Simulated assay, not measured.
Amino acid sequence: MPPTDASADAGPVPVHPVHPVHPGHPGCSGHPGPAEDVRDCEDTLDLRLPSELRALFAGQAPDADIGGTAAPATEARVHTPIGPFEVFFDAPDAPDASEALDTVDLLDQVGTWGPIETPVGSFRLQPVRVERDLPAISRWMNDPAVAAFWQLAGSLTQTEEHLRAQLAGDGRSVPCLGLLDGTPMSYWEIYRADLDPLARHYPARPHDTGIHLLIGDVADRRRGLGSALLRAVADLVLDRRPACARVVAEPDLHNTPSVAAFLNAGYRYAAEVDLPAKRAALMIRDRSLRHLM
C-alpha cells in the first residue's frame, strides 16, 4: 500500500504514488452526460500544447498511431481525439526522438540546484542513487513513526521498488537525500504537482511543485528543524524554477505537527481536500508572498 502522509518534525510528510495522470474530459456542461449528449457537443479545437508535451510527442515513431490516426513524419500537424473533442497541434521538428526526450526536464535539474544557507546549517538536495542510499532510506522507512504514514516498512526490496518507480519514470518526481552540512539526514521527493494525481483534487496551476519530507533520525525531530528545511527547500524551488509560482504539500489534516511545521515555514493553509487515503490540509507557499510569510 502506498505511503500517505508524514510529519515534517515528527519524521513523516505526505507522499503518494507516482502515476501518470489520465484526466477526464467533461462534456459541454462540465459534467459528462449520456453518450448522445456528449456527441451533441462535439467540437474541433485548435490548441498549441506546452513545449514539454510537444517534445514528448516527438518520441513517436513516424508511423506511430496517435489516438487511432497514423501521423506521417512529414506532416506539420498531428490529430488526436480527446474525449468529445478533436485536437490538432503543431508537430515539433525533432528528427531524433531520443534527443528530443533528453531535452525534457520536468523539474529543472534538481541535482544542480546547489546548497542554500539556513538557520540550522548549509543544506542541499542530492538525487538518490539506489546503490549508495538504499540502506539509509530503508532504515528510516522502518522507523515506526515514519512507517505509520509512509507505509513502506519492510525489506530493502520494498523501499527499492518505491525509489526505482520514480527513477525509471518520466522525471515528474525526483527522490533526494537532504544533506545538512554534508551529512545525509532526511529524505525528500520533489514532484510536479500539476502532473500528479493530486491535481485532480485541487485547482492546480502549471508548474506547481510539490514536496514530501521525512526526517531520518529521532534526535532531529520536534525541534524546529523540519520547518527550517521546508522553508529552505521552498526557496530553492522558487529560485531554481522560474516557471513555478507555488510550492504545495498535502499533510494529513489530523497530523498537527506536520501542519504546524508547514505554517511555521511560511506556507498558508489553503483548503481541505479529500484524497484517496486521507483528508488532507492543502498547504501552499506562494512566490508572491514568500518575503511576507
Rank of each mutant, 00 (worst) to 15 (best):
P3L: 03
D5S: 14
D5W: 10
A8N: 04
D9F: 00
A10S: 12
A10G: 15
P14S: 12
P14N: 06
V18C: 08
V18H: 10
P20W: 05
V21W: 06
H22R: 09
P23W: 04
P23E: 07
P23F: 05
G24E: 08
H31T: 11
V38P: 01
R39L: 12
D46I: 09
L47H: 08
L47S: 07
R48A: 14
R48Y: 06
S51V: 14
A55W: 08
F57W: 10
Q60T: 10
P62H: 15
I66H: 06
I66Q: 07
A71W: 12
P72Q: 09
E75I: 00
R77E: 13
H79N: 05
P84H: 14
F85E: 10
A91P: 06
P92V: 09
D93I: 12
D93R: 11
D96E: 14
D102C: 12
T103E: 14
V104L: 00
V104I: 15
D105T: 04
D105Y: 00
Q109W: 09
T112Q: 13
T112P: 06
T112R: 13
G114H: 02
G114P: 05
E117A: 12
E117K: 11
V120T: 10
G121Q: 04
S122Q: 14
F123K: 01
Q126K: 13
P127W: 07
R129Y: 06
E131T: 11
P135M: 09
A136K: 14
A136M: 12
R139L: 13
R139E: 15
M141D: 15
M141T: 06
N142L: 02
V146A: 03
W150D: 01
Q151I: 07
Q151N: 15
L152E: 05
S155D: 15
L156G: 14
L156H: 14
Q158S: 12
Q158H: 13
A168V: 02
A168P: 00
G171A: 12
S173N: 12
C176L: 06
L179G: 01
L179M: 10
L180R: 00
D181L: 10
D181A: 07
G182K: 00
P184W: 02
M185E: 07
S186T: 15
Y187K: 00
E189H: 06
E189W: 05
R192I: 07
A193H: 03
P197N: 02
R205P: 00
R205T: 09
D208A: 11
T209D: 04
I211G: 01
H212Q: 05
L213K: 02
L213S: 01
L213T: 00
L213G: 00
L214N: 04
G216T: 01
G216A: 02
V218T: 15
G224F: 04
S227T: 00
L230Y: 03
L236I: 10
V237S: 08
R241A: 03
R241V: 15
R241F: 07
P242L: 06
P242Q: 10
A245S: 13
R246F: 09
A249P: 00
D252R: 12
L253Y: 03
H254M: 11
N255W: 10
P257Y: 02
V259F: 08
F262M: 13
A265C: 02
G266Y: 00
Y267G: 04
E272G: 10
D274C: 03
D274A: 14
L275V: 10
L275Q: 04
P276Y: 01
K278F: 01
R279E: 05
R279M: 07
I284S: 01
D286W: 13
R287V: 07
R287D: 10
S288W: 06
R290S: 07
